[in-house]
Design a protein around this nucleic acid. Structure first.
Lengths: 199, 199
DNA sequence: CCTCAGAATGTTAGCAACTAACATTAGGAG
DNA sequence: CTCCTAATGTTAGTTGCTAACATTCTGAGG
């Protein structure tokens, strides 16, 4: 149940947790510290976030993305459906993402130990998309391959976007630009195959 | 230092751990149980494997793969270099992989909680390849995107290969076939772009 | 066969992420 | 204002993992 109080507590946890992570690093911050700083108990922390890293990696876009992929032409191969699905919603999502989102991704980008958590979260997105593709008749293996490839590319773009030390396209490239660039890499125009390659 | 005794202990741990995981599941098996069954202490377990999941996800091919990628023509875009690099060694690796390897991957495939560990291990491979690509002058972002996409596809193929319940191409498709199939999906022949698509 | 350095293992103690079961407080709709 | 219910607290435990130091064992050279 979503009560006002519940939302406030959650927001407070998120707030102090990000502060602590940025200040003293993710690994050097214990859940107890976060709880204390938020004026609650360790137990209450885990009632709002299933794991410590859930504070950083939680996105609510899975259903949205799966739907967007499903809306692409059925006669296209899975890779293209996934790619075009992402492209169709990237501008919408990118414009909604707030500063807090960037703070979270930035912390993740700076702590290699957290990339596993990112990938775990990505797994849910992948499952949602694969489910949709197979429902439309795509072979499961093909669906998984296509989705994994696209998500890998998009994740790379996302991390690059938020990491202040990362090398991006140019100064302050927008998230939308980066995602488009990443997805373009999966098309023949930039794969070089059109210019002739034969193993 | 690699002594005979060290190798024997490690092999014993791996053996009993796989047995336990297969019999009672990964999560229901504690490190203490493994240690006892192997006739050692918990501490000794961790001296041989840095983490519990390291028993399952450990591959020594990172340098080999990075080298193979580096050996591909420099004028090709990153995605193609990585793809061809993998193709150039897949048959060699596939023929060497023993039954134990398949047991390990099968356990991973059956326990969703372990996919994070797989991805963490994949991260090392990714770093190795990206390092090589950037050393050859590729933009870091492009290198990361290409590598992530290819590794995502290959991992999907690997899991599909070992999972007895998974849907594969056909009965008993070889690992090499599956990897080739996965990588083919990243080429325009099967992306559908050649048959005309324009967002 | 014996010796003995160094590797392998054991012991103990402890931290931190989580979980279960049950008791208590507090907020908001009527 | 009341009262039901969600939110929080308390306590105690499990498990993965680490540190520091003591002990045993192995195998190569004498």
């Amino acid at each position: 149940m979503v009560t006002p109080k519940s939302l406030r507590t959650r927001a407070r946890i998120l707030d102090v947790a990000l502060d602590l992570f940025e200040h003293q690093g993710y690994d050097m911050t214990t859940v107890n510290e976060i709880a204390e700083a938020a004026g609650i108990t360790q137990m209450t922390f885990f009632r709002h976030f299933p794991t410590k890293d859930a504070v950083l990696v939680t996105d609510p876009y899975d259903p949205l993305i799966a739907e967007a992929v499903g809306a692409q032409p059925l006669d296209l191969p899975p890779l293209q459906r996934v790619r075009l699905g992402f492209l169709s919603i990237v501008s919408g999502i990118a414009s909604v993402e707030d500063a807090t989102a960037r703070r979270r991704v930035a912390i993740v980008a700076r702590h290699p130990s957290l990339r596993a958590a990112v990938n775990a979260s990505t797994q849910d997105t992948q499952d949602a998309i694969v489910e949709r593709l197979t429902a439309d008749g795509a072979p499961r293996l093909d669906a998984v391959i296509a989705t994994a490839a696209v998500l890998g590319a998009v994740t790379a773009a996302l991390l690059s976007w938020a990491d202040p030390d990362g090398i991006t396209l140019d100064e302050d490239a927008s998230l939308e630009d980066l995602v488009r660039h990443a997805l373009d890499q999966l098309t023949p125009t930039s794969t070089g195959l059109i210019t002739g390659e034969r193993p």
